[in-house]
């Protein structure tokens, strides 16, 4: 599988990263080099193998379904670039 410039633009859009036009060819080359490197995995027979979900065999922990934290809006917005009245501020999204 190889990545063309159109795919780089599509993936960059999905990843929400603005890519400059002049950077697209080089990125395509680098992504293809990484994908070529991982192609080696095609040599491995994985039929009947279960995908790894947890490296350490543990039972999923359960806890009581109760509120353990909260009521700290000031803490939550403290590091935000733009806020108003304990809300995050973003550019207008509805007309």
């Amino acid at each position: 599988m190889s990545v063309d410039e159109k795919t780089v633009r599509r993936v960059a859009r999905l990843a929400r990263i603005k890519v400059k036009d002049e950077d697209v060819p080089q990125l395509a080359g680098e992504l293809n080099a990484i994908l070529a490197f991982v192609e080696q995995l095609n040599e491995v027979d994985v039929s009947g193998v279960v995908p790894m979900t947890s490296v350490v065999a543990t039972k999923m922990k359960m806890r009581d379904d109760v509120v353990t934290d909260g009521h700290k809006p000031k803490d939550i917005i403290q590091n935000a670039p733009a806020t108003e009245d304990d809300f995050f501020m973003v550019p207008k999204v509805v007309e």
């Binding site: 999905l14 992504l31 990484i34 995995l41 994985v46 193998v49 995908p51 979900t53």
Partner: peptide
């Protein structure tokens, strides 16, 4: 670069070929 590669291998149509395969190799 890594976010783009990660986004690509998780994108529709590639998830099984890359991510699931890699997790099997991990097993």
């Amino acid at each position: 670069r890594r976010v783009l590669i990660g986004t690509y291998v998780l994108s529709a149509g590639y998830y099984d070929a890359y991510y699931v395969k890699a997790q099997k190799v991990r097993t």
